[in-house]
Simulated scan of single mutants.
Amino acid sequence: MALHMIKLCVGAATVEELLDWHAAHHGAGDPWIMRTRQTPKRAAEMTDGGSLYRVFKGVILCRQAIIEVNTVGEGVAARCEVTLDPTPVRVAPTPRRAFQGWRYLEPKDAPQDLSVEAFGDVPTELARQLREAGAW
């Protein structure tokens, strides 16, 4: 069974800003790697269909499939690199309180993917307001 990871996206307020940042700092063919200090003990479950869910300003807005989880370095210099699918998938905007680092996210607690055909390109703020009002 897939296990997901959830992490705050600091420095970007929207999915578009995150994509712009990645394009400005990495080449088109470079893999999308998220670095963190601690390697998950349940990494094998995360690479079996898991995704990284990103929290922007208190709201989960997208996910990226986890391709690989590696520990780089040794001892106190060891770090974790999570290789992600380069294409974010938008999810139903879901409020989430701030936390430090990353957390596991069980599949039953993960927000549903948004269908582009059903909702089109809804602005992030409008989607958040609709979700808070219970209309979405």
Results as ranks from 00 to 15, higher is better:
M46G: 00
D20V: 11
M34W: 15
W102S: 05
L18S: 13
E132V: 00
I6S: 04
V55M: 00
C9P: 00
V76D: 14
L52Q: 01
P95F: 08
V91E: 00
H26A: 12
L61F: 02
A118I: 02
T36D: 06
K57Q: 15
R128K: 12
R90V: 00
L126E: 08
M1N: 09
Q38K: 14
A12S: 15
L61V: 05
P88S: 09
I67W: 05
A127V: 00
R37G: 15
G134Y: 09
V116Q: 14
G29F: 06
V89L: 10
Q112C: 07
C62G: 03
D113I: 04
R128M: 06
T124K: 02
T87C: 06
A77G: 10
A77T: 12
M1G: 13
H26T: 13
R79Y: 09
A2L: 06
E16Y: 05
Y104G: 06
E125R: 03
G75N: 09
G134H: 09
A118P: 06
L126G: 02
P93C: 05
V122L: 14
P111H: 04
L61H: 10
L105A: 03
A133K: 11
A13D: 14
R128Y: 02
P123Q: 02
P95D: 07
N70G: 08
T83R: 15
L52Y: 05
V10M: 07
E68F: 04
W102I: 02
Q100K: 10
V91K: 00
A2H: 05
V10T: 12
H4L: 01
I66V: 14
I66L: 04
M1W: 03
R79F: 09
T71L: 04
T14W: 03
A44N: 10
V82E: 02
C62F: 00
D113V: 09
D113F: 04
G58P: 01
R96V: 00
A127F: 00
A43Y: 07
V59I: 08
D48F: 04
V122D: 02
A28E: 15
H26N: 15
S51P: 03
L114W: 00
A23P: 02
R128T: 04
G134N: 09
M34G: 10
R42N: 12
K7D: 02
F99P: 05
E106N: 12
A78Y: 08
R103H: 13
E106D: 14
I60T: 08
L52V: 14
R54S: 10
V72C: 06
I6N: 03
R103T: 01
I33Y: 08
G27Q: 11
D30G: 07
Q129N: 08
E74W: 09
R42I: 01
T71M: 11
A98M: 10
V59R: 01
K7A: 15
C80W: 01
E81F: 03
P123T: 00
G50C: 06
P107Y: 02
I67Q: 13
K41Y: 06
A77E: 15
P40C: 08
L114M: 15
E16T: 13
V72F: 10
G120S: 07
E45Q: 12
N70L: 12
K41T: 11
